[in-house]
């Protein structure tokens, strides 16, 4: 049995800043994960559909435009509607500290802001995925 961790890196909304998303995608690949990147301007609906078809363990949402409070929770809600609430959702980007607790309340399991070490994100994923697949 050789189960690889699969991650969807997605950019919801209209924000075109993809430097962070692409960096994360590459860094997670180098940490041994299989990474799918959606490209920019994805609706929450298509992100969820993609995550399901690709059977990912984790969705990483990246957004710098400030629309996170609306778009991140929407992804979580849609996952639950599609019976895929077990997929781990994490987020990153320009996100004020005071929004983080709100996002966590809404089911985003971690929020990584600029300056986070990639190792921290890798550890988070490994730990969460292990728990999930138990």
């Amino acid at each position: 049995m050789d189960r690889k961790i699969r991650v969807l890196v997605a950019k919801p909304g209209l924000d075109g800043h993809d430097r962070g998303a692409k960096f994360i995608a590459r860094a997670l690949r180098n940490a041994g994960m299989e990474v799918i990147y959606t490209g920019i301007r994805q609706s929450p609906e298509s992100i969820v559909e993609t995550a399901i078809q690709e059977d990912v363990d984790v969705i990483g949402l990246s957004l710098l435009s400030g629309a996170h409070n609306i778009l991140f929770p929407k992804v979580v809600t849609l996952l639950k509607e599609k019976n895929a609430g077990d997929i781990i959702v994490m987020g990153g980007g320009v996100i004020p500290v005071e929004d983080i607790s709100y996002l966590k309340e809404k089911g985003i399991q971690a929020v990584f802001t600029p300056g986070t070490k990639i190792g921290e994100i890798v550890d988070f994923i490994n730990e969460k995925v292990e728990k999930r697949n138990k």
Binding site: G13, A67, N69
Partner: peptide
Amino acid sequence: DLPTQIGYDSDDPISEGEVGKV
């Protein structure tokens, strides 16, 4: 804001969450 930059009105579904943000 991004909808203005990408040619969508504020009432377009794709503009959700982005109106007046950046």
